[in-house]
Amino acid sequence: MSMSLIAAQLLNGLQLGILLFLMSAGLTLVMGIMNFANLAHGSLYMIGAYIAAALHAMTGSFVVSAILAVAGTLVVGYLLERLLLSRLYGVEDLYQVLATFGLILVFNQTVKIIWGQAPVFMSTPEFLSGTVTLFGLSYPSYRFAIIVAGLLVGLGLYLAINRTRVGMWIRAGASDREMIAALGVNIRLVNTLVFAIGAALAGFAGVMAGPILSIQPGMGEPILVLVLVVIVTGGIGSIRGAFYGALVVGIVDTIGRAFLPAIMRALLDPEIARGAGPAVASILIYVFMATVLALKPNGLFPAKYR
């Protein structure tokens, strides 16, 4: 087990964490501010990936397809919130869960009708097809670009939430919706804005994941499970919690899957380790989440404005 291998897996975990942050940043605001359980958030990630792949095949430009895919996902999120989900505010969580679960089925069938059931592949942009050298370690340029892009988005979200008037409305809406509405702020517009931004971030995550994953119907559900772990672990409604929670979950999941089976083979009987190693590695993040909740029920970094 060389240091270069450990460093490479740490970077892979950081890259996964960044993708999870892009997904969880929008959903944690939706859940924290609007008190809305949106299970269809993973479908927006899938839609962003499909739109980007289709546009990339048409234009040949990754940058153009990425921008248009993010814009398209933002529009989908806007229309979804305005036409359907806004009618479910204030109802029991069960109805929100059932409605958004139904949307998952609708979106999965829609992409099957448009693009078919076979996986769709999106090539890595040529200008990011090489490698970068970090402290003597060669690492794929595209994966490193995901890390950089996610960090820039995180910085932008931090500044927007904490340094702008719109961010003040969002924080106030998370704390006391009735009071901010009484002060003349259009809380429905704030809800729509938050949901649309969350959809755009999910779409951006799908765009960035497209060249390194196969794009297929249902690809949003597995990552949604990880995103929910991130939100619960970091603290619902907290962008800071989503950021640090995503990095920790990404690294724990990647390191666990990469090294835990080998460690168990060295310590246990090979037959037992062969079956138990991958199984234990797959549940490691849930053990981590349970431990965090046992010690800090509100998450590692609960929203200060709640």
Score class of each variant (00 low, 15 high):
Leu226Val: 12
Trp115Pro: 06
Leu20Trp: 04
Ile239Pro: 07
Val148Ser: 09
Arg165Pro: 01
Met3Ser: 15
Trp115His: 07
Val63Lys: 06
Asn12His: 09
Ser65Tyr: 08
Tyr244Asn: 08
Met289Gly: 02
Pro261Asn: 07
Ile187His: 01
Val292Tyr: 05
Ala172Val: 03
Gly277His: 11
Tyr45Pro: 02
Tyr95Leu: 14
Leu213Ile: 09
Ile212Pro: 02
Leu284Pro: 01
Gly13Trp: 10
Gly245Met: 06
Val227Pro: 02
Gly245Glu: 01
Trp169Val: 05
Gly102Trp: 08
Val111Ile: 12
Val185Gly: 03
Asp176Glu: 13
Glu92Pro: 04
Val280Asn: 06
Val153Met: 10
Pro261Arg: 06
Ser61Lys: 09
Gly235Thr: 00
Ala54Asp: 12
Phe243Val: 05
Leu103Phe: 09
Asp253Thr: 11
Arg177Glu: 14
Arg163Trp: 13
Val225Gly: 07
Leu224Ser: 03
Gly150Ser: 09
Leu157Arg: 04
Gln9Ile: 02
Leu84Gly: 04
Gln117Thr: 15
Val292Arg: 04
Tyr142Leu: 06
Leu83Lys: 13
Gly245Arg: 06
Ser65Pro: 03
Ala145Asp: 05
Ala69Asp: 04
Met289Arg: 04
Val229Asp: 00
Met264Asp: 02
Phe127Leu: 11
Tyr50Glu: 00
Ala160Gln: 00
Arg265Tyr: 13
Ala273Arg: 14
Leu27Asp: 00
Ala149Glu: 10
Ala242Ser: 15
Ala174Thr: 07
Ala40Ile: 01
Arg306Lys: 15
Asp93Tyr: 14
Ile180Lys: 04
Arg265His: 15
Ala57Pro: 06
Leu105Thr: 08
Leu293Ala: 08
Thr28Met: 00
Ile113Phe: 13
Ser24Gly: 01
Phe195Met: 01
Ile180Ala: 05
Tyr78Ile: 00
Tyr95Lys: 13
Gly220Asn: 10
Ala181Arg: 15
Met208Gly: 07
Ile255Phe: 13
Gly90Pro: 08
Ile236His: 02
Gly237Thr: 05
Met168Cys: 09
Val97Asn: 01
Asn162Gly: 04
Gly72Asn: 07
Val97Met: 14
Arg265Lys: 14
Gly218Val: 12
Leu5Cys: 04
